[in-house]
């Protein structure tokens, strides 16, 4: 049940502050698809704060049921297989927050997103973060951090990349990076360019706004 007095932003988990950042990047009243919308936190922010016509796609059935019971427009589906059913340019903005790394074919997912949406917002955990690098270098162990908090054998994150890897893939797919905002220790920082070597070392997450070049 939606409590109209509740401020969804106030309930954001510390590791998902990218959601408020993303919500603020979306034009009020626009049509948005959130792929991998989870429990609908971002959708609720979009609907309540920005009056957005927001739809969601979510793999987990319990996540979907929870969303619909809260009045959100969400369908059960898989980012790898179900995006092909959406029409060309059907949405102003298509969002993929912290989901790309869990897809089977990230490049195909991005291609489909670029077909469906005029504008893409993608947030990813940065596998180039210094703690990740240090874990591997010093301990010789697969990194477990606040953002990447599952052991290698049980993680859903099967396609991790660094911010630099991601921008290179965007080049390959013909997507221009309109902006890149990094997140570290709960602080957001807008980069002047696409991304920097420094950001690739210091950022825990990156939030990219992409358009078709």
């Amino acid at each position: 049940m939606i409590d109209p007095k509740a401020n969804a932003a106030g309930n954001l988990a510390a590791d998902r502050i990218d959601l408020q950042l993303i919500a603020d990047m979306v034009a009020p009243g626009s049509k948005v698809l959130d792929i991998g919308c989870g429990d609908g936190t971002l959708l609720e922010l979009l609907v309540k704060q920005h009056g957005v016509d927001a739809r969601g796609l979510e793999l987990s059935q319990s996540g979907v049921n929870n969303c619909v019971a809260r009045g959100l427009s969400v369908v059960q589906g898989n980012a790898d297989t179900d995006l092909s059913y959406y029409p060309d340019n059907g949405f102003d903005t298509v969002i993929l927050s912290q989901t790309l790394q869990a897809t089977q074919r990230p490049h195909d997912v991005l291609r489909e997103m670029a077909r469906i949406g005029k504008r893409l917002i993608v947030s990813i955990p940065n596998f180039g973060h210094w703690r990740v690098r240090l874990d591997l270098l010093v301990k010789g162990r697969m990194p477990v951090t606040g953002t990447l908090n599952a052991s290698w054998y049980e993680t859903a994150n099967i396609h991790l990349c660094t911010l630099t890897d991601f921008t290179q893939l965007c080049d390959v797919l013909g997507l221009s990076v309109e902006s890149c905002t990094t997140l570290s220790r709960g602080k957001a920082k807008a980069l002047p360019g696409r991304t920097t070597r420094r950001a690739n070392l210091l950022a825990e997450q990156g939030v990219f706004v992409l358009t078709r070049s």
């Binding site: 059935q61 969303c67 619909v68 427009s73 969400v74 369908v75 059960q76 059913y85 959406y86 029409p87």
Partner: peptide, 18 residues
């Protein structure tokens, strides 16, 4: 049905109940 509704750009929710 839901895929068709999505293709039609409809506002659709879909829940499978256990």
């Amino acid at each position: 049905l839901v895929r068709a509704l999505n293709a039609a750009g409809a506002n659709v929710s879909f829940v499978e109940i256990e």
